[in-house]
Design a protein around this nucleic acid. Structure first.
Lengths: 193, 193
DNA sequence: GTCTATACCTTGATAGAC
DNA sequence: GTCTATCAAGGTATAGAC
């Protein structure tokens, strides 16, 4: 019933989304053409229109894919760390693990927001949901430490703000020094909770 | 020797730079065409190439113009406020004064960095200088409060990080709530210095 | 010096061969 | 279903009239 080897059908779609995700991140959405995508994926230009009706539809699938991966990551941390503080510290490590890419391409969410906010309101909303997802998750962990919901959300927003700010400075300066400082600051903040 | 009324020569250049600055901010650099610029400024497309040899050259002039305006602003604050703490508080007000634009178009520096980092390394360096300018100025004010240079710079970076993070979240959420919180946080931080 | 017409290229998208 | 050839639109940049 299913092809034993080689990518077929749905797998091709997945492959397109994954390579597009990387290329959009590295070159930006508007700046990457289908010619670029075709070159990076090995799949011919025209073929894209069999799987997606437009460039916008492809972008939507890419963002959706990112959201799903993020969800899985957050759930994984809940499973891996019983202590909410450990979960928070793991979340903070995101920027540490990705620091080299941050210095070159910026934050995958932040840079895309910057791009879409000006001309693609629809996708902007989708992406904002991704940030909300992180913020809400962080707030839940803080709340688990017996903080009132409102206070927990304030702390969560502080953390997210610092992470986004650090990512921005890292990208602008092309240098990762800010990351270590920020991780240390946030670890200390989490320790005090 | 000079035309008594109407914009001529250098004034036209200035007018081009100022309208381009606004349009680049609102629609992004890559997304704005010369047709857009011409419409916004009233100056015909082709005319742009008499004053600037390329779109990149125009962008460079726009960034340079921003840097000069920023310099003037920082100098102005030094003149207006003898107390370094008042200067810092005034600087923090930048994001408060611009909050409505931040919610719609994002940070003028940050969004441009996001765009240029991926495909225009040359201008990225230019823009990074703009952030360095702010950071250095902030550090000078902190240092004036008898802090060691290294510590002063760490505080300056903290402030800039929070401001950039707040701008990013404001843009992503399309909502200014984060700004007030951030200004309050930074005011408190400055008060404790 | 100022503006118009246009050259040349790349883009997103489609039609239709295989 | 997969890929190639091509389209119309719009982009930057230039040539040359005024």
């Amino acid at each position: 019933m299913m092809d034993p080897m080689g990518k077929k059908g749905e797998d091709i779609r997945k492959h397109i989304v994954e390579t597009a995700n990387r290329t959009f991140y590295r070159h930006g959405f508007q700046a990457t053409s289908f010619a670029d995508l075709a070159q990076d994926s090995g799949i011919p230009k025209g073929n894209y229109y069999f799987h997606f009706k437009s460039k916008d539809a492809l972008l939507e699938a890419v963002i959706q894919n990112r959201i799903e991966r993020l969800r899985a990551q957050l759930n994984g941390w809940e499973d891996a760390f019983p202590d909410p503080k450990d979960r928070l510290k793991r979340a903070v490590r995101m920027i540490e693990n990705e620091q080299d890419d941050l210095a070159v391409y910026g934050c995958p969410i932040g840079t895309l927001v910057s791009e879409l906010i000006k001309n693609h309101p629809r996708h902007k909303t989708q992406l904002a949901g991704m940030l909300r997802l992180i913020e809400t998750w962080l707030a839940e962990q803080v709340a688990a430490l017996s903080y009132a919901p409102k206070e927990a959300q304030a702390h969560a927003r502080d953390m997210l703000r610092a992470m986004q700010g650090a990512a921005m400075l890292t990208a602008a300066y092309g240098e990762t020094a800010v990351i270590a400082e920020t991780v240390a600051d946030l670890d200390e903040m989490i320790g005090r909770l």
